[in-house]
Design a protein around this nucleic acid. Structure first.
Lengths: 332, 332
DNA sequence: GTGAAAGCGCTAACAC
DNA sequence: GTGTTAGCGCTTTCAC
């Protein structure tokens, strides 16, 4: 098996407490024995057992990250931000894909608790969670951060983008370009962000003296295909839109495809704005105008907030709302 | 702090060994006390400490996954396959991004060893690794699997796609379409897969009675931009190609963009084949013909192979080479 | 400066 | 069927 501090102690002719002290850089060992031990540890290829250490320190230096699906292009960037920031501070990440399944999400929470992670970053399947939803599973004040979703409890850690503002920005842009008949196509009501984005767009429309009526809102599910379906429905209807705000880029790309197949000129006859600025939206030939989120940064910040909280720091805001950024390309 | 089996034992009025037996479903407890203990555990919200368990069982039920970069669209699918398969078998995954940096890769290996993962799935930065490269760090016969790369040691676990065949398939397709002046554009020689893909294409060309000369091979780095640069170089040269095989889809998309910007009709004047079948290649308006790898399945299989090995099974092949699949779209 | 010993939470012998 | 005990590898008192 693996080399332990006892093995080193035996070879060095000292107690294993001294080895521990030497290896962890603690005082209480003469420079001479410390050098000897360090040398021996190297030669014997000693690798400390992080679990044994965790058991006594009651800190595992691990974090759990639960996201809906790493295949969804929105999440890799977040995951990368989380991983980089965590690693920089000595933490490792358990990655979990909830597959948009609340039961699986819950199951993963349980697993992470059993592994005694020091904290969990949760990108929840459903919006408006609060730590109270995990009573019994999580101890009081367990370091849990809701990422990219709203938290109902103002005490809980939460980091997200201002979706209301995002919707407002998207609508304002097309309004400014002269569009008057806005449509909104989204996935499913109740999922994080959707309602706010719609509401923001609605407000912008009203401020501009027009409306975004219920008939031009279609909630048809996620993915490109649902965008295709949605735009067909809209285009087949009596009330043709001149702009569509899509709840995310995937859907927006479906809208683009569907519209082009029906011979609609973009942005000539129809403007399209997406959300999230996923990598594909930037590809030549797509060039989707979109409302971006600082995904990588959100991942980093989530770790910072969580670790601050773990370290007992209370000087930071527990709820952070970031501003989305307008990325204007060629579909508006 | 967390509830322990001692707390339960105290409340149940039994020894904590009995609690352990009851909770782990081991025989040696009467049905009556088992029920009582189970009930109590539920009420007290007991969550077993996985680390404590691991310490004595010398199995952590965790696996390490090291990939170059989760932002690269080739990897999320692999990661997802790994995570799903691992979870289904009770394992959790530590995710690590080496950022194409060999030192970071090594550092992560070390970290994973310290965390005593039961095995590591490594998608290496460089090709032709072998367990011997980790002597001193990894014990003999440590469960290490090389994914999507060649392993030099025939004894080591290795799962990859047949890149030679892939290159051959790509070239054969354009040759069949009548192309005669093939070019190859790739990232960097020595990175996993590149040389084999080129060699496969070369063989197909030769079998078809033509050649793929050195002048039409350009290795200009990764990413879309390098594809753009490469095709410009090729198109500015004296020896115009009528087909380009790109080492991966990103580069291929750059080639597409560069060629279109220079007014070259695709596939009329130039056929383009990519590699990997990343999600973006399927997008309407891109429709890249490509040689796909069963990425999700590779992730799953990697876990299966690794766990079989961990469980002492020796009946499976230690080196598995999967067949790539031709996905013909609109660029050929 | 150094060693002995307790203990983190659990499983697995071994008694009874 | 149940309790006692050792021990996984480490950190941390507490003596000396």
């Amino acid at each position: 098996m693996n080399v332990t501090i006892k093995d080193i102690a035996a070879r060095a002719g000292v107690s294993y407490a001294s080895v521990s002290r030497a290896l962890t850089g603690k005082p209480g060992v003469s420079d001479e024995t410390r050098q000897k031990i360090l040398k021996l540890a190297g030669e014997m290829h000693y690798q400390p057992n992080a679990m044994a250490r965790s058991m006594v320190k009651k800190r595992t230096k691990t974090l759990g990250l639960i996201i809906p699906d790493i295949l969804n292009p929105f999440f890799p960037e977040i995951a990368r931000g989380v991983e980089d920031a965590a690693h920089a501070r000595g933490y490792s990440i358990f990655l979990c894909n909830s597959s948009w399944n609340p039961q699986k999400e819950r199951r993963y929470m349980e697993l992470l608790v059993q592994r005694r992670v020091d904290g969990i970053i949760l990108v929840p399947v459903d919006d408006h969670k609060s730590p109270a939803d995990y009573r019994g599973l999580l101890e009081d004040r367990f370091p849990l951060l809701f990422l990219s979703a709203e938290a109902d409890d103002p005490e809980s850690l939460c980091l997200r983008v201002d979706n209301l503002l995002g919707g407002y920005m998207a609508a304002s842009l097309v309004l400014k370009k002269g569009c008057r008949k806005l449509a909104f196509v989204g996935g499913e009501s109740g999922k994080p962000g959707v309602n706010e984005r719609l509401e923001g767009a609605r407000r912008a429309a009203e401020e501009a003296g027009t409306v975004l009526p219920e008939e031009r809102v279609v909630l048809s599910g996620f993915g490109m295909n649902s965008g295709v379906r949605a735009i067909r429905e809209l285009l087949d209807g009596p009330d043709l839109p001149d702009a569509v705000i899509a709840e995310n880029d995937d859907i927006a790309m479906g809208v683009l495809q569907g519209a082009r197949e029906m011979g609609v000129a973009i942005p000539g006859e129809l403007s399209v704005v997406g959300f999230d600025n996923i990598p594909a939206s930037a590809i030549m030939g797509i060039d989707l105008t979109t409302i971006g989120q600082p995904k990588y940064k959100m991942g980093e910040m989530a770790v910072d907030m969580l670790l601050s909280h773990i370290d007992g720091d209370t000087s930071f805001s527990r709820q952070v709302v970031l501003e989305p950024v307008l990325i204007e390309r060629k579909t508006t």
